[in-house]
Design a protein around this nucleic acid. Structure first.
Lengths: 118, 118
DNA sequence: TCCATTGCTATTAAAATAATAGCATGCTAT
DNA sequence: ATAGCATGCTATTATTTTAATAGCAATGGA
């Protein structure tokens, strides 16, 4: 497994270790944001429930992401299964604005498609 | 190169094509968020200036991310070099809350380090 | 005891990324 | 004109990550 990024230390893609770059390293891995998002929206999940909610994540990758997110303090494993920590909840809330952007983007794409289609 | 994710179509990691998942696909690639971030903060950049501002990105990956982000409408290439589009600016602004999270995370980590060190 | 659920690990193949070198183009100063 | 120099990449090879799939060990009923 890859090292888990830690703010203040050099991380993949940034020698400075600027916290934001470390976070981009953590969340810029396949499925990382999707897992935080899904886990926050679904609430506590078993491994398999989370896997299904994610539609198409392989168990190896899910397990890798969960380990990283747990080590980073964004996710924890309790009696109800996996769930986000308060830090993970903050992370989820910080991702919320992206939802609006994604919708703007979607209409944006539709327009450029119709530009070339019509 | 991998396909560029498009909201509404199945993307890597999501059959639904929910816009947010398509965006996670786009931005969840190595350096994607860092490029948007850096380009927004630095303003228009030449390829090489952007490469240096990113500290340690390889030209092949930078080029791949720029192509994807241009195709997605987040980045454009003008006279002053590469720069973010209005959509890219929205994306950047949507990432801003992550900065605070990264700082909370950084202090969080310091504490857990001192927990085991002291 | 038999079976289902859960939480993974193992394996193999494909894809993405890193690291590095270097090329083609368009200046610009000599 | 030509010899740099900057820019925007591409090429190549090695390494890492991810995908896809199978399956195992532990747990808890029925």
């Amino acid at each position: 497994m890859t090292d888990i990024p830690v703010p203040g230390k050099a991380v993949r893609g940034s020698r400075s270790g600027a916290p934001i770059m470390a976070l981009f390293d953590l969340l810029g891995r396949r499925w990382a944001m999707g897992v935080v998002w899904t886990l926050s929206e679904e609430g506590p999940c078993t491994f398999r429930a989370l896997q299904e909610a994610c539609e198409s994540i392989s168990p190896a990758v899910l397990n890798a992401r969960l380990k990283e997110l747990r080590a980073a303090g964004f996710v924890t494993q309790g009696d109800g299964g996996y769930c986000v920590t308060p830090l993970g909840q903050e992370g989820y809330e910080a991702l919320l604005p992206l939802s609006k952007v994604s919708k703007v983007w979607a209409t944006h794409i539709e327009q450029s498609v119709s530009d070339t289609t019509d």
